[in-house]
Computed example of a mutant assay.
Amino acid sequence: MRAASGAGDAGAGFFAGRRPGRPGLAVFVNAGDPPLDVLPDLAAMLDDSDVDCLELAVPFPDSVTDGPVIRRSADRALAGGVTLPAVLDAVAALRPTLRRLRIALLADWSHTVKGTDLGDFARSVAGAGCDGLLLHGLPPRLRAAHYEAADRAGLPLVTTCYAVSGPATVAEAARHASAYLYLVAHYGRSGTTAAPDRERLGTVLGRLRGATRAPLAVGFGVRTGADVAALEALGADAAVVGSAGVARIEQALETGRDPVEEFASFVAELRRPTSHHRTNEGTHT
């Protein structure tokens, strides 16, 4: 079994290239949207385009935390027959071709993992070459087993909390983050939420900084390069962008344009802090 590349390093590999003026960047994509055979080209483009992390979701239907852009994307991928084994096979095939891009797999407990031994699941994710795992919708009673299974597999974890989460939730997320801690800027469905409350985020980031060695990434409401730069100024190590980029993939597919080229254009905009381009929707998770 191949240990994930970020194992044992408190997630440093995910955003190791960040520096002043160059904040970390993670982008969300549903595996299979664009079609899974396009993933190698998409990943290669991200690897060449100053992106640190691909948050690659195993598609699942009817997400209660996602807005229409992410839901339509998942539905397209599911209609194409995308499954967990297909996604892991795709990651295993492209991993040797990547120089610096990290892959954090997002999987939904109910749709993808339920009924599978957590140890077997963690080993399969790590063995495919994924650098981290974000497990969505895991029942609280199974969290301890999940943490233990990931640790045994050498699989770094992405943990999550909200800017308004209670102290116990924040402490648990900080304690178990080993890939990065994903701070969700506010409640609401992805792509339908308002801009982040920067004052609150700055306060929460300051508290988290003293509670974990893992990088701190912020998502929800991140649409432009200016948004990414603003999060860096608040103390975030990275920004996570979802629906805004997925919307560009959707537009490309609808109009017959190359989704990889369209997404490359979007990434270039994110790396230009003065860009004022905005899509109609926000970001994932």
Rank of each mutant, 00 (worst) to 15 (best):
G11S: 08
D197K: 09
D120G: 07
R152P: 00
A122F: 07
T116Y: 06
L134E: 00
H111L: 11
T224I: 07
G137R: 02
L216W: 10
D151V: 14
G221P: 01
G119L: 09
Y180W: 13
G242M: 08
V91Y: 04
P20H: 15
V87L: 07
A16L: 14
A244H: 01
L94C: 05
L39N: 00
V240E: 02
R141G: 02
G127L: 03
R100G: 04
L56R: 05
T83S: 11
A57M: 09
M45H: 00
R22W: 13
V113N: 03
A150N: 03
A10M: 12
L133C: 01
Y187M: 15
L216N: 07
S265R: 14
E281Q: 11
R198Y: 14
P61F: 05
A171W: 10
A93G: 02
G188V: 03
V204L: 12
L105P: 05
R22F: 14
C53D: 06
G245P: 05
H111M: 10
S5M: 11
L201V: 12
V228H: 06
D258Q: 03
L56D: 09
G13F: 08
G129V: 08
E172M: 13
A185T: 13
L181F: 05
A3F: 13
V218L: 11
P35K: 04
L94Q: 10
S63V: 02
L157C: 11
T112D: 02
D47F: 10
P167A: 15
R175M: 10
G24H: 13
L135F: 00
G8P: 12
L142A: 08
D120K: 10
W109D: 04
L133V: 01
I249L: 10
A236G: 06
A177C: 08
G137E: 06
H186D: 09
L253K: 08
I249S: 06
R271G: 06
T224K: 01
G32F: 09
T169K: 13
R19K: 14
